[in-house]
């Protein structure tokens, strides 16, 4: 199953950078070498086996934007599942940004009225001072500009975990029956005496499903940003393995407060088990993961076909 995702926004706003970070496992430091995207770069990203994200990275220079909105209008805006529109937080010409955005929304309303719309206020790392206040103000402005269209706004930067938070949320809306995966993950976590279990997509390390809510399971007071921070950390470690022409396989840790095992679950996913019970050994967790594999392979293909 193929799902079209449009990635739009002014030239230099950071679209290709985030794509190369999330889908190609490149480090943030290399993005400054990217050239401007010419016209549309289409990528097919296999996500969870049968689900294919068809990512349209639309170069943001004015001449391209004008053509998307005129001659290419129907090609670009039809069959869209998700529109991601990127706004650079310190954009020089915010008024022009806003105008193009409104025109794109109009076109989307006409050709793909059911598409979900995500707005990323990007390069938040460059904000000096109170980031949350800036993000709140931009969110209100963007919601006003979107009129009656429901939009979800995220503040992002390629230099921290916020990018993973936004993209995990976005892909989550595309995965059919993500709730079923979460339910089984909860059962699995309980069987392992795990505090929680988290399922990641293998190449992007975006979070697909979790066994507990972001506030943490009952009786545990865990950091709310732990999922996206985990994605960021493991992505970085995977990258340094690649630089050595090695490939990251699995990780286990025995820390004073908890034990953790990160290992492949299905062909397309990794699972992270977090255990606060000191009597549970990593070897037992690894065996449990092995035993759960067939069930999750099956579930995953069901959830994608549904």
């Amino acid at each position: 199953m193929k799902k079209k995702v449009l990635l739009m926004g002014a030239s230099g706003s950071g679209k290709t950078s985030m794509r190369s970070l999330i889908f190609s496992n490149n480090p943030a430091s290399l993005t400054s070498r990217l050239g401007a995207t010419i016209d549309v770069e289409q990528n097919h990203v296999r996500f969870l086996g049968d689900l294919i994200l068809n990512l349209w990275d639309c170069g943001g220079q004015d001449s391209f934007m004008d053509s998307y909105l005129s001659t290419q209008r129907s090609t670009i805006f039809q069959h869209v599942w998700v529109l991601i529109y990127v706004f650079e937080v310190g954009a020089r010409d915010a008024a022009k940004d806003a105008e193009y955005y409104r025109d794109c929304l109009d076109a989307l309303q006409k050709y793909s009225p059911d598409a979900a719309v995500f707005l990323l206020v990007h390069k938040m790392d460059l904000v000096v001072g109170e980031k949350s206040a800036v993000l709140e103000r931009r969110t209100r402005e963007l919601q006003a500009e979107s009129g009656s269209v429901a939009v979800t706004v995220f503040g992002t930067s390629i230099y921290d975990e916020t990018l993973y938070k936004a993209w995990s949320h976005i892909v989550h809306t595309i995965i059919p029956n993500a709730a079923v995966l979460s339910k089984h993950l909860t059962t699995f976590a309980r069987a392992c005496s795990a505090t929680e279990a988290i399922l990641f997509e293998r190449t992007t390390f975006l979070v697909i499903a979790t066994s507990s809510s972001p506030d943490g399971p009952d009786g545990f007071d865990l950091s709310a940003a732990r999922y996206e921070r985990t994605s960021e950390l493991i992505k970085a470690l995977k990258h340094s393995c690649t630089r050595m022409r090695e490939e990251f396989h699995a990780l286990e840790m025995e820390l004073p407060e908890f034990t953790a095992v990160l290992d492949g679950m299905t062909k397309n996913t990794y699972v992270l088990l977090i255990v606060h019970d000191p009597t549970i050994e990593t070897a037992a967790l690894k065996i449990n993961i092995r035993l759960a594999r067939p069930k999750f392979e099956e579930l995953q293909s069901d959830s994608v076909l549904a």
């Binding site: 505090t195 943490g216 009786g219 545990f220 007071d221 865990l222 950091s223 940003a225 732990r226 921070r229 985990t230 950390l233 840790m253 820390l255 407060e257 908890f258 953790a260 977090i274 606060h276």
Partner: peptide
């Protein structure tokens, strides 16, 4: 960096 992420304040 991993340690503090899943360190429970209540356990």
């Amino acid at each position: 960096a991993f340690g503090p992420l899943y360190m429970s304040a209540s356990v």
